[in-house]
């Protein structure tokens, strides 16, 4: 099993409690190792429905439907998954549907796999091009506030908001294991 070096994932529990407090019901994901703990917590919460996807764009459509039906959701994905979502995000922008995504970054801070770099470097810009507001906390301390503020902006002000979770927070993938 892949493991992450250097970091604890205690931040995951705190992020999860923000999701709980914000009344998140549908949790769509294509897994990234950095989200492993949050996914587990969501799966074991009886008020949340964890929806495993085959591709990230499914999550954009799913969460649009969730909100049209009166539920809030979040999309958990890796930065590479943002590339799979672009056209579907046009619907979010055109309909101004609240949309929250927490993105585990790859391809930047201390990346080992060169194939992650192009999409990781383009992630923030592409999201902004599609009308998504991007928060990019650099430390675990800033992360909590960012997720809280992002959820508020998404669901109170009806906006699309992404929180990019840096490899500085998640830690590097351990290729030695």
């Amino acid at each position: 099993m892949p493991s992450l070096m250097n970091k604890e994932s205690g931040w995951s529990d705190e992020v999860f409690s923000v999701l709980q407090n914000m009344g998140i019901r549908q949790v769509a994901y294509v897994p990234d190792a950095g989200h492993a703990r949050i996914i587990e917590l969501c799966q074991s919460d009886s008020h949340m429905r964890a929806v495993s996807l085959t591709t990230e764009e499914e999550g954009v459509a799913l969460l649009a439907g969730a909100w049209l039906g009166g539920e809030r959701g979040v999309l958990l994905m890796q930065s590479s998954g943002v590339g799979n979502c672009i056209n579907m995000l046009a619907m979010i922008q055109e309909c101004r549907i609240p949309f929250l995504t927490l993105i585990a970054m790859r391809g930047e801070w201390g990346e080992f796999n060169p194939w992650q770099v192009p999409m990781g470097q383009a992630t923030g810009g592409l999201l902004r091009d599609m009308g998504v507001i991007v928060y990019r906390p650099d430390t675990t301390e800033q992360l909590m506030g960012a997720v809280n503020a992002a959820a508020q902006l998404a669901f109170a002000a009806n906006r699309a908001v992404a929180v990019l979770i840096s490899q500085q927070i998640i830690g590097f993938k351990n290729w030695q294991k």
Binding site: G65, G69, A90
Partner: peptide, 22 residues
């Protein structure tokens, strides 16, 4: 009725989101 005028490939998943919420 909710019509998709774009979002090609997303209709069934949007339906899933509504169905789970309702």
């Amino acid at each position: 009725n909710f019509y998709l005028w774009g979002a090609m490939g997303g209709a069934a998943l949007l339906g899933l989101g509504v169905a789970l919420a309702q």
